[in-house]
Each structure stands twice: as C-alpha cells, then as structure tokens.
Amino acid sequence: MQPFRSVLRALRSAGSSFPAKAVVAALVLALPGRTARADIGIISPAEAKKLIEADDPAKRPIVLDTRGGYKDYFRGHLPTAHHLNFDTLRGTDNGVPVQYLPDDLTKALLVRAGVNKDRLHLIYATGEKLPNDEILSASMVAYVLEKYGVKDIRIVDGGLPAWKAAKLPVTQEYFGNPKGALPEKGNPDIALTVDDVLKRKPGAVLVDARPHNEYVGDDEIWLRKGHIPGAISFHWARLMEADNTHQFLPFEKVKAQLAAAGLTADKEILVYCGTSREGSLLRFYLKHVAKYPNVRLYEGSWKEYAALKQHPAETKENKPK
C-alpha cells in the first residue's frame, strides 16, 4: 500500500483542480504488481538481459536476430535469439525487386519465427561505423511486426556491439521459438502506396531517407536518378551515433536538425528511401523515439517509383517549408 499512499499524498497537495481521470490513472499506475503497458521503442542491453533472464519463462521476451548474414548468427548471438533474416520478408513482385511479401506468406513467416501477440519482442542486429547499415534490418522487422498488429516491440539500443561492450553473454547455441500467434487485427494504415504519396494532402512532408548523393541522383544504383518531386532529404544516419550505427541519438540532440528539415510533431510525415529499410529507420525514430503522432512509410519506395516512368522525378534540392 505504500505506493498508493504516496500517490494520494501527491494528489492532496495538488488540490481539487486535479482532473478526476488523472487521479484514477495515477492510482492504477501505483498498483503493486502492475505490468508495464505495451509499447514500441528502444531498450538498453542491460535491461534486455534482465528480461531475457526472467525467472518466469512465460515473461521472457521473444528475441529476434534480424541480420542478413546467417554466418554472423552462427558466430555468436544474444541468448535465446531466433534468427529471422530480414530479407526473407521481401521478394520480387511484378518485376520490382525486394517488395514486401503478400500477407499470407508474411504471416506464415512471422508465426514460424514465434512472433506472439501476447509477448514482448526484442529485436537487434549489428552496429558499426558507416557503411554498416545492419540497424536497418532491425527497424524493418520492427515495422513489419507493427504493421501486423504487434504492440510490444523494443530495438536493443546499440545492438550486438553494445551488448558485447557491456560484457554480456553471447552464445552460438541455436534457439527455436515455439509457433507464434499474431493479433487478429493488424495496423495496415502505417503503410503507404504510391497513390497515397501522389495524392498526399497539402502540408504533408515527404522525406527521402537515403544518402544525399542518391537523393540528387549522383549514384550508379537506380533505374532513374533523383527523387519524388517535392521530397526533402534527411539521411537516416543523422539520427545514430557515429561510431555505432545501431545506437540512437537522444531526441534532444537531433530535435533542432529535425525542425530545420521541417520534420516536426505537428506535421503529417510520409517517409521513403530506396527499398524501405532506410525509411523504416527514420519512421521508427520519428514515431517511437521522438513520439511524433503521424508518420507513415511508403513501402515501394524509390525502387518501385523509379520503375513507374509515367510519374516524374527530379534532382533539384527541395528546401523545407
């Protein structure tokens, strides 16, 4: 009862102006044994370790190693980590490579990986200096889980390097999750189609998360050069620590940069990149670290748009409005 009494004392000191709903919420928060609400965000390696080693197996998280290199998984991974190669969730569709798979195939892969509507999911990959971009596999898988209705997801901040730097245990033992169970209702509204992008509302911010050289068409990668007309440029790596691309910078450190780019919480923000991985990272940060309310991802991204030659492209730099 001690937490209850502490809350009551605080409420009495606040006076009668304290809203009734807030009183109820505060009392519920103080209940002993109350579990934390489901959320999507980041978690420190130390806290992740505590959860993985929970006494009650039913309360342990589903741990997903999302790295594309299976030999990396063999060399060492977090205890109880199940390998879910991010790229198994994509394939060529109508000639366009790395498109997201149909719902039935995706659901089957997630269920086989043990994704469970009632469990917390810890997702990680590798983080090193650029050009290492393995964090994008973690944010992409987090996006897919969120799209299919999973509400409790954390990316391990700093990834495997931060885990090792903290001298936490690594194993080579395989770990197979039992068959999962997805939520009945997904969250498809976080995804955008090309038509959604083309018909976007006035005032919506379209942002390209690729490196700036690709944004302006100085590359040897893409079928067409440049970007979607009206898009601004904000490279995803600006949100990460320079010496560990898996470690997120605190929002206060990047808030001014985001605002200068026109990326503020009051805007509707539409994100894309090359294949949607970079965009998934930018969206994850804006939505789940910065807590912006309205951020969605164009899944087809530039690799799809570049093939739709009926739609224009541009190479000029667009300034934030």
Rank of each mutant, 00 (worst) to 15 (best):
Q2G: 06
R5Q: 07
R5E: 13
L11P: 00
A14W: 05
A14H: 00
S16H: 05
A20S: 08
A26V: 02
G33F: 13
T35Y: 10
D39K: 04
I42F: 07
A54N: 13
D55R: 04
P57H: 15
A58N: 07
A58T: 12
K59R: 15
R60L: 06
D65P: 03
G76Y: 03
G76Q: 10
H77K: 06
H83E: 06
L84D: 05
N85G: 05
F86E: 00
D87K: 08
D87R: 09
T88I: 15
G91D: 13
P97N: 08
L101D: 05
T106V: 15
L110S: 03
K117C: 08
Y124D: 04
D133I: 05
E134C: 12
I135C: 07
E146Y: 14
D152S: 14
R154M: 11
R154K: 15
D157C: 04
D157I: 03
L160F: 11
L168R: 02
P169Q: 05
Q172N: 13
E173R: 12
P178N: 14
K179N: 09
G180A: 13
E184F: 10
L192E: 02
V197G: 00
L198Q: 10
V205E: 15
D208F: 06
E214C: 06
H227M: 07
I228L: 03
L239V: 04
L239F: 07
A242E: 14
N244E: 10
Q247R: 10
K253R: 14
G262Q: 10
L263D: 05
T264A: 01
Y272S: 04
S276E: 06
E278T: 11
G279S: 05
G279A: 09
V289Y: 00
A290S: 10
V295S: 01
G300T: 01
G300C: 07
E304Y: 08
A307D: 11
A307Q: 13
H311S: 00
E314A: 09
E317Y: 05
